Amino acid sequence: MLSKEDVLKNFLKEDTEDVIKVYQCMNLAYNKGIPTFTKFFCKPNIWMYFTKNFNANDFLVEAKGAFEECDRKILAFNNIYSTPFPYRIIKITNKSKFSNLSHKDYLGAIMALGIEREKLGDLRVIDNCAIVPIYEEVADYILYELSSVGRAPVSVEEIQEDNLPKSNFLEGTIIVPSLRLDNIVAKLANISRGKAVEIIDSGKVLIDYSKSIDKSKEIKDGQRVTISGVGKFIIGEIVGNTKSGRYKVKMNKFI
């Protein structure tokens, strides 16, 4: 198994604390031969790295976060007994006819209770409600304590995973001269490549939730690109080329 120091070389400094926690969790499972779960929902760059590099026939590494195509997931190591992942799913329903609540409103209300962001998975707003997987140790607290979002009264209940709605994406195809980050950002944001470079340099672009200021970085199938003020996208596979040699690339935009 790779050393902690070798693993950390693959991450930015801002991810160091989380990566060390995940590595320790994995190390415990590996050395003791027991199933372990991370104590928080991991960002995509973290769970993707560990599932890709450590999953093997004799050592199972899985990531799960309730929703299809979700970003934040809990990592499980050596879960040979298929123990359920330690999260529960909460549905928060807006009971006000006069307030339209956004993702930011629901997330802010939960965190105002003192809940850390890492204890929450992806939060999805659908019509007049929000659905979010929550680490099991804090789920009851939210169920009993959350009664309003802003000035809007809400009801809170637990739902089962088989009742989850499908993820909402706007599917499309973009045409780019290369898979460089500046070309991808320019097309997704409908701006010039020069302007794309400016917002990349200013730190307003995230790749799998980590800041990236490398405009020449090649984007890969399955990576999440978040552009401040524009939206969040999942980059898909190359599906063809134009006569001029440009790439046709699938993408999904979260809506």
Rank of each mutant, 00 (worst) to 15 (best):
residue 163 N to S: 15
residue 119 K to D: 05
residue 164 L to K: 11
residue 136 E to S: 10
residue 158 E to C: 03
residue 150 G to H: 10
residue 101 L to H: 05
residue 161 E to A: 14
residue 157 E to W: 03
residue 130 A to V: 06
residue 160 Q to F: 13
residue 144 Y to S: 11
residue 118 E to S: 14
residue 149 V to T: 07
residue 138 V to M: 03
residue 113 L to Y: 02
residue 150 G to M: 08
residue 112 A to R: 14
residue 149 V to G: 00
residue 126 I to D: 05
residue 159 I to N: 12
residue 165 P to R: 13
residue 134 I to C: 00
residue 136 E to F: 00
residue 118 E to H: 06
residue 155 S to I: 12
residue 124 R to T: 06
residue 150 G to D: 09
residue 143 L to S: 02
residue 158 E to N: 08
residue 161 E to C: 06
residue 101 L to W: 07
residue 152 A to R: 10
residue 142 I to A: 00
residue 128 N to T: 12
residue 148 S to Q: 13
residue 150 G to I: 00
residue 157 E to I: 14
residue 124 R to D: 05
residue 105 D to K: 10
residue 157 E to C: 09
residue 129 C to N: 10
residue 135 Y to C: 04
residue 108 G to N: 01
residue 125 V to F: 02
residue 113 L to K: 04
residue 114 G to H: 01
residue 123 L to G: 04
residue 162 D to G: 03
residue 135 Y to T: 00
residue 120 L to M: 10
residue 165 P to K: 12
residue 126 I to M: 10
residue 121 G to K: 12
residue 110 I to G: 00
residue 132 V to P: 03
residue 151 R to E: 03
residue 112 A to M: 12
residue 154 V to F: 03
residue 120 L to C: 01
residue 105 D to N: 14
residue 118 E to M: 04
residue 118 E to Q: 11
residue 125 V to D: 02
residue 159 I to L: 07
residue 123 L to M: 08
residue 133 P to D: 05
residue 124 R to P: 07
residue 139 A to R: 10
residue 124 R to W: 13
residue 159 I to V: 15
residue 140 D to T: 14
residue 153 P to F: 09
residue 129 C to S: 15
residue 136 E to A: 08
residue 147 S to Q: 12
residue 146 L to Y: 03
residue 162 D to M: 01
residue 102 S to Q: 12
residue 113 L to S: 06
residue 134 I to V: 15
residue 159 I to T: 02
residue 158 E to A: 11
residue 164 L to P: 09
residue 156 V to Y: 06
residue 128 N to A: 10
residue 110 I to T: 01
residue 157 E to V: 15
residue 156 V to K: 07
residue 117 R to F: 04
residue 121 G to E: 03
residue 107 L to N: 05
residue 123 L to K: 03
residue 154 V to Q: 06
residue 156 V to W: 04
residue 136 E to P: 02
residue 112 A to N: 15
residue 117 R to D: 08
residue 158 E to D: 05
residue 121 G to W: 09
residue 138 V to F: 03
residue 157 E to S: 15
residue 106 Y to R: 12
residue 118 E to P: 00
residue 148 S to M: 07
residue 158 E to G: 00
residue 137 E to S: 15
residue 165 P to D: 11
residue 144 Y to H: 11
residue 143 L to C: 09
residue 153 P to W: 08
residue 112 A to E: 13
residue 141 Y to M: 13
residue 130 A to R: 07
residue 111 M to S: 07
residue 111 M to T: 13
residue 153 P to K: 11
residue 102 S to A: 08
residue 161 E to Y: 04
residue 151 R to L: 14
residue 130 A to C: 02
residue 107 L to T: 05
residue 105 D to M: 12
residue 125 V to H: 09
residue 111 M to Q: 12
residue 131 I to L: 07
residue 131 I to H: 02
residue 105 D to Y: 04
residue 104 K to P: 01
residue 118 E to D: 14
residue 160 Q to T: 15
residue 152 A to T: 05
residue 116 E to V: 07
